[in-house]
């Protein structure tokens, strides 16, 4: 038995010396020192040894077991270190290979701009009010102070439907009438809304013009709303949209449903006003049409224009998006080419 024990000890040590990977080392440990390991078994078979030799055998066996355990711990640490070193050294990948692509979704750029606008206007107390795409001629034009055959109608090329008096809205402004009648409670309540929506114009689709486009209209009605408020509000919007230093310019213009009317330019945010392709070398980019709500429109919305006043504005989310991302072809918006959409 003694001899057997000593042989086992020598064999085990020799074997351990030759092991270089962690798995083999751990297998060695269970083979010799585990619950069913060789050393353990020998210790258990101590009963077969004559009584007088037992103490010495037991002592030696325990010495060997401890020595082997110590050798194992040493070896195991060494092998772990070697393995780690090997992995750090040899486990490198070609980091220039492309990663595994995860399919990602994304919002349409027009939606992204609309959301930006909703958020800014919400901060300023304007809520989203939506109204219909198919409108009556009356709401789209007449109630907005644009009588039939009036030359101002030349400002909107219109899609007519086969139902007389029914058209596709040319702008979101008819929503002003709906909002005033719906929210104004017969001209007794102030209003602050924005009216986003799809509009349609009888225009050939080219890189520069679309027959379908979003507009975002704004409307504020109150007992004391002034043109200076309109300017202050639009300027505040421009600072939120284009940065704290955005310079804004107000040009007199004409819309039948506002008076005074104006167009709003922001200093080109790409060239800082020096002139570039996007601003057509003018240094300014048009961002909105606006004005004080015309007394006739107030009346048509149920308000007494001698007591109530208001302002309205309209913006083009697609134009804003084009300027922001240097998009040169407006047709990209509704073509839904994934190669375009995936850039957002």
């Amino acid at each position: 038995m003694h001899q057997q024990l000593e042989t086992l000890y020598a064999e085990a040590l020799a074997e351990l010396e030759g092991l270089t990977d962690g798995q083999a080392v751990r297998a060695w440990e269970s083979r010799y020192l585990g619950a069913k390991g060789a050393v353990t078994l020998i210790l258990r078979s101590i009963g077969q040894i004559p009584k007088e030799e037992r103490a010495a055998f037991g002592k030696r066996a325990n010495e060997i077991k401890e020595a082997l355990a110590e050798a194992y711990a040493e070896r195991e640490t060494l092998v772990r270190q070697q393995e780690l070193a090997r992995d750090l050294e040899e486990g490198a990948v070609d980091v220039t290979l492309p990663g595994r692509t995860t399919a990602t979704g994304g919002l349409h750029p027009a939606t992204q701009t609309l959301r930006q606008l909703y958020a800014i206007w919400a901060e300023m107390g304007f809520q989203v009010y939506r109204s219909r795409d198919v409108e009556t001629d009356e709401t789209n034009f007449s109630l907005l102070n644009i009588p039939p055959h009036h030359p101002a109608r030349d400002m909107w090329d219109t899609f007519y439907t086969t139902t007389p008096g029914v058209i596709l809205r040319t702008h979101t402004s008819p929503g002003q009438i709906h909002a005033m009648r719906d929210l104004g409670q017969n001209g007794t309540q102030p209003i602050r809304v924005i009216l986003p929506g799809m509009c349609y114009r009888y225009e050939q689709v080219t890189a520069r013009s679309e027959m379908q486009f979003h507009q975002l209209e704004g409307l504020a009605i109150g007992r004391n709303i002034r043109m200076s408020d309109l300017k202050g509000t639009i300027s505040a919007f421009a600072r939120r949209m284009y940065g704290a230093n955005a310079a804004v310019r107000y040009r007199a213009s004409y819309f039948p449903f506002t008076e005074p009317s104006m167009e709003v330019d922001v200093e080109c945010f790409l060239c800082g006003g020096k002139g570039c392709r996007v601003c057509k070398y003018a240094g300014w980019i048009e961002i909105a049409g606006a004005g004080m709500v015309h007394p006739i429109v107030l009346q048509n919305g149920g308000y007494d224009p001698t007591e109530w006043s208001g302002f309205a504005f309209g913006m083009g989310p697609e134009r804003m998006t084009m300027n922001k991302h240097d998009i040169n072809d407006i047709r990209y918006f509704w073509q839904n080419d994934l190669r375009f959409l995936e850039q957002f």
Binding site: M227, D229, Y250, E259, P260, S261
Partner: peptide, 25 residues
């Protein structure tokens, strides 16, 4: 009033914050 504002210059009309009552949000 539009004619007055136009000739006077829109740029000379101040920017103000709406002082009017905020409608229910």
């Amino acid at each position: 009033i539009e004619e007055i504002a136009r000739i006077y210059g829109y740029d000379r009309i101040p920017d103000t914050l709406i002082a009017d009552e905020m409608p229910p949000q």
